[in-house]
Design a protein around this nucleic acid. Structure first.
Length: 473
RNA sequence: GUCCCCGUCGUCUAGCCUGGCCCAGGACACCGGCCUUUCACGCCGGCGACACGGGUUCAAAUCCCGUCGGGGACGCCA
């Protein structure tokens, strides 16, 4: 039997973090077992489904490199299949029409809740004594599943273990709305049967749906697949992750300068572990992922750790790739995109250990990307002082005379002056740093100078010198 | 309210199934130190948890029961 998993989002919004992890687990499990990973769009709720959401979900999956083998399939294109199966159930006396009005049902539900009872369908339209109910004429009706009133339904869940539900807890769920369109729990089962899904891996908020679905499988004459309900992702307040916890869409992280590898690595470790290992390549994940190692308890989303993983990927990324990846962020900040790829690489190399995201890296690259450096006045006051004017001027001359404008050459120029004047490096480096970058913190001063190049370095030193001159008078 | 799930450092987790190797290991964050031209990186060290109460046992984070706490489901949403 070849493994077939599926990710089945409803396109009512972007792909959120929890969905991304579910997709990842399904993907990994399928790949691990040489199976197929299927994408299905559950768009039966026509009110809330949008083409934009579909696009956003596909984009997010693509960004995360969770490529699917079949689909996307759309439930709205499969109405015939659902209708056919409803007819089958109706004919077999396993479903029945219900003429209860939504308002009635709602009132009963409210009352039950108020009286602290479990709100459930009271069976008003349930056919008595095993008769096959006839279709009501001239009245709107829904089709309900005739759910057994006794016995138990067992879910043998790969992560949660054996969970037993009393069938009395399950009411006669609606399979088709009064407009004839099928509902979620029914479509899912029909689809998973037709698409030959062998393993359903999804959030554990679906665990309580599972006994109904198992009952539907049985009614339709099929064996249920394996179920694996993975715990939910919580916010810092332990409530289910939602908008108020900040960025929750997968692509929001892309836009904030995170790498897909980092997000995937973070997400997979939330609820799953392989010993003490923290960093996983995609290949390792495929090799090592297993549902048995997925934990049972919900996990809190920790942005700090994601950031740490991202910085890891930032530090270890091939430079030429990094250079490509920062370009969109440079443009987004409104800088002209540098054409010299090699230069971009050198620039990124000096910054990558100081930034945790691409956004941060580009922010710190301001003095490379623009000649209008923002001078920190406090720093200027402290370091661009008259006593440094001479060494600074001398350094400018030394750098101007350099035939090879490399890090090594720059260092020699510095050392020569420092030795002659018996100055510690910091005494000269800080003023130079302020002159070139506008701030007291930056990458190593030799790297900065080498990357900036002779012309821009000299120009900035010159204007610093001028500033010292004028403030003297 | 009813049903279901869950409960190891602040957070993610290893260990739990197959009790002793665990006065509980790793990671993020935090604190201190080292490295150092600044800031980072890196390295070293520190802080810090078996929810609680009973039981079983020579021995319990690990097995059993209860309590408490958190989450989820209860839609003509998915």
């Amino acid at each position: 039997m070849t493994v077939r998993t599926r990710f089945a989002p409803s396109p009512t919004g972007f792909l959120h973090i929890g969905g991304a992890r579910t997709a990842l687990f399904n993907y990994l499990f399928a790949r691990r077992h040489g199976g197929k990973f299927i994408l299905r769009i559950e768009d039966t709720d026509r009110e809330r489904s949008t083409p934009e959401a579909i696009e956003a979900i596909i984009q997010a999956l693509t960004w995360l490199e969770l490529d699917w083998d079949e689909g996307p399939f759309f439930q709205t294109a499969r109405y015939d299949a659902y209708k056919e199966n409803i007819q089958k159930l109706l004919a077999a006396g396993k479903a029945f029409p219900c003429v209860c009005a939504p308002e009635e049902l709602d009132a009963k539900r409210q009352l039950a809740l108020k009286e602290k009872r479990k709100p459930a369908y009271d069976g008003t339209c349930r056919p008595k004594d095993g008769k096959i109910a006839s279709i009501p004429q001239g009245k709107p009706y829904t089709i309900r599943f005739l759910s057994p009133r006794d016995g138990t339904t067992v879910v043998d869940d790969t992560v949660k273990g054996r969970v037993v539900f009393d069938n009395r807890e399950l009411d006669d769920l609606i399979l088709a709305r009064s407009d004839g369109t099928p509902t979620y729990n029914f479509c899912v089962v029909v689809d998973d049967i037709d698409m030959k899904i062998t393993h359903i891996i999804r959030g554990d908020d679906h665990l309580s749906n599972t006994p109904r679905q198992i009952l539907l499988y049985q009614a339709l004459g099929h064996t249920p697949p394996e179920f694996a309900h993975v715990p939910l992702i919580l916010g810092l307040d332990k409530a289910r992750l939602s908008k108020r916890h900040g960025a929750t869409s997968a692509t929001a992280y892309r836009d904030m300068g995170y790498f897909p590898e980092a997000l995937a690595n973070y997400l997979v470790r939330l609820g799953w572990a392989h010993g003490d290992q923290e960093i996983f390549s995609r290949a390792e994940l495929i090799e090592k992922f297993s549902l048995e190692a997925v934990g049972k308890s919900a996990g809190v989303f920790n942005p700090e750790k994601l950031l740490w993983l991202n910085s890891h990927y930032l530090k270890t990324r091939p430079l030429s790739r990094l250079a490509d990846e920062i370009v969109p962020f440079i443009k987004a900040k409104g800088y002209p995109a540098p054409q010299d790829h090699a230069w971009l690489e050198r620039m990124a190399a000096t910054l990558r250990e100081r930034a945790k995201t691409l956004t941060e890296l580009v922010e710190q690259a301001h003095f490379y990307l623009s000649d209008e450096i923002s001078l920190d006045e406090k720093a200027a006051k402290k370091f661009l002082t008259p006593d440094i004017r001479e060494p600074l001027a001398e350094l400018a001359d030394g750098l101007a005379a350099l035939s090879e404008f490399s890090e090594g050459g720059v260092e020699q120029a510095f050392t020569a002056i420092l030795q002659r004047r018996e100055l510690p490096l910091g005494k000269l480096a800080q003023p130079v740093r302020v002159a070139l970058t506008g701030s007291t913190t930056s990458p190593g001063i030799y790297e900065v100078i080498a990357v900036l190049g002779k012309e821009r370095t000299l120009r900035r030193l010159k204007s610093a010198l001028e500033r010292i001159q004028t403030s003297q008078v």
